[in-house]
Every structure is written in structure tokens, then in C-alpha cells.
Design a protein around this nucleic acid. Structure first.
Lengths: 242, 242
DNA sequence: TATTTTCGCGTTGTCCGACAATCGGATAAT
DNA sequence: ATTATCCGATTGTCGGACAACGCGAAAATA
């Protein structure tokens, strides 16, 4: 029999402390907002020194499950979606994700989400989209950063209005990654600003008309256009987004 | 003049240590696989004690940017996609994401990804899909867990073959979240196993035929069917996936 | 009495020094 | 050449110590 011996686990104590508290939080034993025991109390409960407890707490702190409140006291919290999105995009960027991969993801999600947006975006969201577009058009043509920021902000505002946190988290991740690629592309595509503004106009119109098909179509074309611009600029689809 | 005084920053030292190393890694100053200085060396460089350095290292450890290698030595690593996906799904679950939100995300991503799958999945992937389906059919009808596992594994295998890490990360997150909801649903839907197996058959056929439209259509119906089952079972779309 | 000031206490952030356990590599023994 | 042994370096953990800071209670002031 190959009754394999399990690779002997020698978890350091600070990891056990981390997991113990983590488990208690995720299992509902500690509600969000509840304040944790002080470090010295944790020392007694776990039977380890404060240094060890503190190392465990740092791990939790990074996951966003605990935060420092007023008076430095630790209390249970929820990881902020912004942070996990940032972590995801950074991780993907570091692992060498390419423009192609990001673009495919964009192309998969946004058109589908556009259908939802058409039926779900509130007046406030639509106004915000219009404002973004107007600000974009008012920009100097050479202001690459500004154009990129507004192009991404448009996506971001759409995602915000979807009333869907799962989608929001994912869209935020890709938005963060597309940034640098877009900048490189726009620097080489002279009329990028106008094309983007025009696409945004169509999309806003379709949303205002509450027309899912149109919204999807124009958003789809918008993203396809980004790729076209990228290729026309002579950039490599398989290059990392960095 | 409102020459605002910048809000005085009082970052603890261990955070500065963390950020300093983090920055050096993400800026390429430290390649993946490179080994970090020992803790004592870091102490000298930063001018703090080992305890402080260690707390900073714990933060980095959690982000996945550093790992413990053989001989405990620290070395630079990349965050594993599995981990960030797990973190994302946990964060979303904790923040009370609903079945509706997850389902909408599924419905947005998978059909679009199916198009890619039709043209991109390798023979090995397709065989794996078939194996999963066969295993599923061989299961006892009462084996809820098994059915869920295979339903999710089918999705997972598709995602694996897409040659797209961005998509993979996102799909993995939603796969992890759909789990519990699916279980509740299947417990109440007697013929769930057969319906799922049938959907998988159609999808596999479409992929083998390299037909993007068909693949998208059947995957779309498959996911729509999951929702139908969920509603028929009398479950609340707005209930948290927990 | 109501408001402000002061003070002490608890907690965290940081420091210091110490030690066992463990791993890598050098060295010695077979 | 292989095995056993030893040694140094490094990590994980410990215990104690102290300054800084925030909060609440006590004291001083109006």
C-alpha cells in the first residue's frame, strides 16, 4: 500500500494564532465591528508571547479581517472590495498577464454587464457618465493621462451603478490593469480621444433609451475599438500589461 | 490661502518596512525567486529591531509576495492566483454577496468565455470535461456534494483551458462562491443531476465541433437553468451565498 | 452645576536580549 | 565515495522593558 505519510506539518505558532482568529471571524463567532481582546489577553488565551500574537495579528491585518479603530484597539472588519480588487490586479500583473488576456476579459464582461446597465443605471449614474464624457472632451488632446483616466472612469462609473458587488469587484480588477496599456496605446493613437468620446456618446444614448441590445452593441464596439487601436499602434497583444 | 497641512501621517514602522520591501519587489528591484536578506540584515538596513522587521514581513507573507523557502530563508515570490481568488470570494461572501449577484456574474462571463473555449480548448481539456461528466453520471442521485463538486469542476476545467489568467482568476472566484448556493438548490431539485449532465453533453459536443455559437448558447442555457432550478426550489435570489 | 483641565491607566508600538530548533554546509570518519 | 558529525547561521519564540498615545475618571475652574 502506498499509505503515504502526510508531509509532517510544522505550523509556526503565529500562523495558528492567525488561523484561529480568522476561523472565529468567518464562522460568525465574531461579528463585524466587534472589538477583539487586547494583545495581552490573547497572549494568555493562546499561551504564547505578545510578539507571537502580534505577528499573527499582522497577517490578519493584511487580509482586511481586522482593522485598527480609534485608540488603536483592534476590531473585526470586512475586507474592502477596493483592496481585494487591487490585490487581484497586482497579482495578475506580476504574473505577467498580457493585454490579450485583459482585453478578452473586458470583452467578456462589459458587454454582458452593459445589458444590465441599460435597465438598472439610475439617473445619477447616467449624469455622472455624461459628466465624465464632457470632461473628457474638454481635455487637451495631448493630455494622455487625462484621457486614460476618463476612459477608465467611464467604465468604473458603469460598474458602480450595476448594483452587483461581484461584478464590481471583477470589473475593478480589470480596470486597474488596463490602465497602463491604454496609456501606451493612446500615446500612439492621435484621435483616440475623439473615438472614445464618440463611443461613450453612443453608449450613454443607448442606456438612456433603456435599450440593452444597443448598449451591449456599442460597448462591445467600444472595447473592440480599443483593441484595434492597440494593434494599429503596433503594440504587442502578448506583451504584459506591466 | 488654504495651503492645507497634509494630514500628518503616523505610519507604524512595521508598515513602512512592509511597504519599502513591497515597493522594491513590484518595481522590479527584486526579481521573483531572489532571496531576501536575513532578518538581522534587514534590521540594520532599516534601523529597527527584529520584532519590527518580522511584523512587516508577516504582512508581506500574507500578500504572497514573499514565501519561506527551504531553510526558512525568505525569498521573493508571486502571489498564487488560487489564493487571490480565494481571498476575493471570501471577501465577497463576507460582504453579503447574493446569489443574484453571483449568477449575473456567471451569466456575464461564462457564455463569452465559452466562445473562446470552443476555439481554444485542447484535446486534453476536452477529455477531462468528458471524464468529469462521466463521473457525474455515475454518481448516486442522492450524493448532493458529489453532484455539486462535478458541476463546479466542469466549470473549473473549462476555465483552466482558456489560456487566460485574468479570466481564470475571475472564474475561480465565482466558482468558489456558487458552491454553497448550488448545494442548497440541488438538494431540492430531484433531477438536477440529469439536467446538468445533459447540459454538459451539449456543451462538450459544441466544443468538439469547434462551434462558438453553439457552445455559447448551451453554456448560457446551462447557467440559466441553474437559476431556474434555484427559483423553482423556492430559494431567494437575494439571499447571501454565505 | 456645567465645563474644562489634569491625571492615571491601559494599550499599542518598539526595543533589547536571550535561547532552542532547525537547516546548510564544512569537516571528519567509514 | 559515501556516511556521519559538527558548526555556524537563521528563524521562531520567549520574557521583559519603556515611551507614546488615547480614553475615562477625577479634580479644578467658571
Amino acid at each position: 500500500m502506498d499509505g503515504e505519510f502526510k508531509p509532517v506539518v510544522k505550523e509556526p505558532a503565529y500562523l495558528k494564532v492567525c488561523r484561529a482568529i480568522e476561523e472565529k471571524i468567518t464562522d460568525g463567532g465574531l461579528a463585524a465591528g466587534a472589538s477583539l481582546p487586547t494583545e495581552t489577553e490573547l497572549c494568555e488565551q493562546f499561551g504564547v508571547t505578545r510578539s507571537t500574537v502580534r505577528e499573527g495579528l499582522r497577517l490578519l491585518e493584511q487580509t482586511g479581517l481586522v482593522m485598527r479603530g480609534p485608540a488603536k484597539r483592534l476590531f473585526v472588519s470586512r475586507p474592502k472590495l477596493d483592496d481585494v480588487a487591487a490585490a487581484t490586479s497586482r497579482s495578475l500583473s506580476l504574473s505577467g498577464a498580457t493585454f490579450r488576456e485583459v482585453w478578452e476579459a473586458l470583452m467578456a464582461i462589459y458587454p454582458a454587464m452593459a445589458r444590465l446597465a441599460a435597465g438598472r443605471l439610475q439617473g445619477g449614474n447616467i449624469e455622472a457618465l455624461q459628466t465624465i464624457r464632457e470632461d473628457l472632451m474638454a481635455l487637451d488632446d495631448q493630455d494622455t493621462d487625462g484621457v486614460v483616466d476618463h476612459a477608465v472612469a467611464f467604465f468604473q462609473e458603469m460598474a458602480n451603478g450595476l448594483d452587483n458587488r461581484v461584478a464590481l469587484a471583477m470589473l475593478q480588477s480589470v480596470n486597474l490593469m488596463i490602465d497602463k496599456s491604454l496609456r501606451r496605446m493612446i500615446e500612439l493613437a492621435p484621435n483616440a480621444k475623439l473615438r472614445i468620446a464618440e463611443a461613450q456618446r453612443r453608449i450613454i444614448e443607448a442606456i438612456e433609451a433603456r435599450n440593452p441590445d444597443e448598449t451591449e452593441k456599442w460597448l462591445s464596439r467600444h472595447i473592440a475599438d480599443l483593441r484595434r487601436g492597440y494593434e494599429v499602434a503596433g503594440l504587442d497583444m502578448e506583451a504584459p500589461v506591466l
